[in-house]
């Protein structure tokens, strides 16, 4: 029983991180129909910047995260302007390849600047807490609380502000949004900004309980893809729910099935979903 609760808690922790990453991915997909393969690299970049800000510039954890959000968010905007915007009318194979090019560059860049070594990120929240028979560091609690806070903020932004509602409008109908006078360029840039920011937050939160290295985005991005296919490409609630479902299945699978193969769970899940429904769960029927 205690193991189960412990694992559920762990599932909640990783699930929170997955949800944040998947949210960024699904937002971009919803607005621009780009499967951004470089999103994992943005995640990785976010981790390194927070780490560097803390170790080299001596900034406090939160301040470092703030810098990271800015840098990665702006990187996202830059990518939209320089790469995806010029490709918006190209065949669908092109934006995927472009994204892969960016991914390869960012990873090589990280390795060039920060080296290939695994690095650990210090955190002011490393106190061990014992509660109801489960043990965890306060960082894990922080992950869950911050992730949920970010999700609520994002929700309020999208639903309650005018600029947020333009994003929703454009996700639903791009041409329509253009017709009613929404500046689709601005919205696209904003979406990439938010997407990058979410990746930076997710990585900065998760890094202290993992390690920072150039390839850290690989598995995360693949799993995020699984999540948004699970939850419906472009769906915001789908990304959140899907993230937690995957988090729980992984932590439980690691304990009760096999720790070696826990990373496969997500992909097997995806293979099953797409085998049954080739257009993903919750796909709309076209006319």
């Amino acid at each position: 029983m205690e193991i189960l609760i412990q694992q559920l808690f762990n599932g909640l922790t990783i699930g929170s991180v997955y949800s944040l990453v998947a949210l960024g991915l699904t937002l971009v997909y919803g607005i621009l129909h780009i499967p951004n393969f470089a999103h994992g690299a943005l995640y990785m970049l976010g981790g390194y910047i927070t780490l560097t800000m803390m170790t080299s510039a001596g900034l406090h954890y939160w301040l470092a995260i703030f810098v990271s959000i800015l840098v990665v968010g702006l990187t996202g905007v830059l990518l939209e302007r320089l790469v995806f915007h010029p490709l918006r009318h190209a065949p669908p194979i092109h934006d995927k390849i472009a994204a892969i090019g960016i991914l390869l560059f960012l990873e090589a860049f990280a390795q060039f600047v920060w080296g290939a070594d695994y690095q650990s990120m210090p955190t002011p929240y490393d106190k061990v807490i014992n509660l109801f028979g489960i043990t965890f560091t306060s960082q894990r609690l922080l992950i869950i609380v911050s992730a949920i806070a970010v999700m609520i903020l994002l929700y309020l932004f999208l639903k309650k502000t005018f600029i947020g509602s333009t994003i929703i409008a454009m996700a639903q109908n791009r041409e329509g949004a253009n017709l009613v006078g929404i500046n689709t360029n601005k919205v696209a840039m904003l979406t990439f900004m938010i997407s990058g920011a979410l990746a930076a937050i997710a990585c900065s939160l998760a890094a202290p309980i993992n390690l920072v290295f150039p390839g850290m985005g690989h598995l995360v991005i693949l799993k995020a893809f699984v999540i948004i296919i699970l939850g419906g490409m472009g769906s915001i609630p789908g990304a959140i729910v899907g993230g937690y479902i995957l988090g729980f299945s992984e932590s439980l699978g690691a304990t009760y099935v096999s720790n070696d193969y826990k990373d496969i769970i997500a992909f097997v899940l995806l293979v099953i979903i797409l085998s049954v429904k080739p257009t993903g769960l919750f796909a709309k029927e076209g006319r």
């Binding site: 790469v83 010029p86 490709l87 190209a90 065949p91 092109h94 390849i97 472009a98 892969i100 090019g101 960016i102 991914l103 390869l104 560059f105 960012l106 990873e107 090589a108 860049f109 390795q111 060039f112 290939a116």
Partner: peptide, 20 residues
Amino acid sequence: QDYRMLIFGPVLTLLIIFYP
């Protein structure tokens, strides 16, 4: 060596934009 993608990554992206 390990950094060759610093060059080939952007090459890939630029090619697909300008010389698909």
